[in-house]
């Protein structure tokens, strides 16, 4: 996916919204900036599975580096339709292709209002530069 066309949360998740049968589906991952600042990732764990209802701001899992843990937050409310479990066995995907094969969950959006709170690419870049 082209990072410039994605939406971003303050907590560094990216969101790609696509039309699907019966509504919209959000694909969620974390940005290259997040992956880099976490340095060497060693573990990922998902706390949600397909079928779970989630609200914007809920955690859906966590990533760990050697000396840090970061929560992963749902940027929108919806129902989990897919979890990228295989990432756990190929964590290098997160640094190799954070915006593509590094996707983490797909959510069927039930409430689009949270989308309005997300940043576009330029705003997100600006935020990262300030950190």
């Amino acid at each position: 996916m082209n990072p410039q066309e994605l939406l971003y949360a303050e907590t560094h998740e990216w969101v790609a919204v696509a039309d699907a049968e019966g509504g919209k589906v959000a694909t969620v991952g974390i940005s290259d900036f997040a992956v880099e600042s976490l340095t060497d990732l060693v573990y990922i764990q998902f706390s949600k599975s397909a079928g779970d209802a989630v609200a914007a701001g809920d955690t859906f899992g966590e990533v760990e580096s050697v000396k840090a843990v970061s929560d992963l937050y749902c940027p929108v409310s919806g129902e989990v339709v897919a979890v990228h479990d295989k990432l756990a066995d190929k964590l290098e995907t997160l640094s190799d292709d954070p915006f593509g094969e590094g996707w983490m969950v797909k959510l069927k959006i039930t409430d689009e209002s949270a989308l309005a709170k997300l940043m576009d690419y330029d705003a997100y870049k600006k935020m990262c530069a300030e950190q």
Binding site: Y43, E64, S65, V66, K67, A68, V69
Partner: peptide
């Protein structure tokens, strides 16, 4: 596996 521990989590 220190991320289990109190000084991090």
């Amino acid at each position: 596996l220190q991320t289990r521990e109190q000084h991090i989590r």
